[in-house]
């Protein structure tokens, strides 16, 4: 072991004297929790990027997605002396102190796929999959097109304080005021806490409390699968249209048997791909973390850093339906 690290050190020295640009930077991505299929695809983006460009990549995640469970992992990365920490934060504020400690050591801290809303000063930048201000309107349009722009709809969300979901729900409440949706009525917003059991109970309760319900938006991967399953087992797919944000791998069966006509998401893969490229460019001085500056990412084109040091990987949501779902492998 010692021998190996000595060789590595010697090699590192040789490299750094030979050509600084060829130095590989260390990137670690800390997911919300292990066993979460969403992060498999995101991690793949990092891995494949680091096969092409100068970075070493590792993925770690705590066993549970509880607010403080990521802290020991961040502390460990500081101790390891990595160059970049990319993280999908489990808490909007419990990580502030440890983020500050990491940045004091010169580590770039980027939040990926979710931000520490209200505490943005504690991270360097954020990479979000799409423009979150448009998600609400897109989802209302989606459910509208499924129910013929008429009837009662409801929202089945994650937890009551989930910041992203709440932001989108706010957008939905705004969007539905458009005269185009005058005959649609948002009757309830319920929370399944991202647990299959609880989401199922909430969905059953929605259908018992609102017998005329026409559509349900579940902007969370656990919620949309649970809602689809309730509709499937009750055999009412023609009466209640389920849509929202889901993973193709989890929704494929529901789309193929007609339970769900269409749903939306983005590409988690591209988030990892973009994050790795940006990390390498920032460390090499090829990109600047300043609002308004731009950089190039293969396959994604020119990316701009928006207000609040926020970056989007795609401009609009991708819609999945029976025609295209087999083209996606996540």
């Amino acid at each position: 072991m010692l021998k190996k690290s000595l060789i590595a050190m010697a090699a590192g020295l040789a490299l750094s004297t030979a050509a600084l640009a060829q130095d590989k930077i260390d990137i670690v991505f800390i997911g919300k929790n292990t066993g979460n299929p969403y992060f498999d695809s995101l991690t793949k983006g990092f891995v494949e990027a680091c096969q092409k460009i100068a970075c070493n990549f590792e993925f770690v995640a705590p066993a549970t997605a509880e607010a403080t469970s990521q802290i020991p992992f961040i502390e460990a990365q500081i101790q390891r002396g990595v160059d970049v920490i990319a993280i999908s934060p489990n808490s909007p504020d419990a990580l502030n102190q440890v983020f500050d400690a990491a940045r004091a050591k010169g580590i770039i801290v980027m939040t990926v796929n979710g931000d520490i809303t209200g505490n943005e000063a504690h991270r360097d930048l954020t990479i979000l999959p799409t423009d979150f201000t448009k998600v609400g309107a897109d989802q209302i349009e989606m459910v509208g097109s499924l129910i013929g722009y008429e009837g009662e709809i409801a929202i089945l969300s994650a937890t009551t304080e989930a910041p992203d979901q709440n932001f989108w729900i706010k957008g939905m409440n705004e969007a539905i005021k458009d005269p185009k949706y005058a005959k649609m009525k948002l009757v309830a917003t319920v929370y399944g806490d991202d647990q299959p059991e609880k989401s199922t109970s909430e969905m059953e309760a929605l259908m018992a409390n609102f017998p005329d319900l026409k559509g349900v938006i579940a902007p969370t991967t656990v919620g949309i699968a649970a809602a689809a399953q309730v509709v499937q087992s009750r055999g009412v797919a023609d009466k209640v249209k389920v849509t929202g944000l889901g993973l193709p791998s989890e929704m494929r069966d529901f789309v193929k048997d007609g339970t769900v006509a269409a749903f939306q998401l983005w590409s988690p893969y591209n988030e990892g791909w973009l994050a790795a490229h940006l990390a390498v460019d920032l460390k090499a001085g090829k990109a600047k973390n300043e609002v308004g500056s731009t950089f190039e990412v293969p396959n994604l084109g020119t990316i701009t850093i928006n207000a609040g040091n926020s970056i989007n990987t795609q401009s609009a949501l991708t819609t999945f339906n029976a025609e295209n779902i087999d083209q996606f492998d996540f």
């Binding site: 590792e58 020991p72 390891r80």
Partner: peptide, 16 residues
């Protein structure tokens, strides 16, 4: 035990 395994980037499953 837990710090040693975390700083070695081992799966948390191994810690359990």
């Amino acid at each position: 035990v837990s710090t040693g395994m975390t700083v070695a980037n081992l799966l948390p499953a191994i810690q359990l």
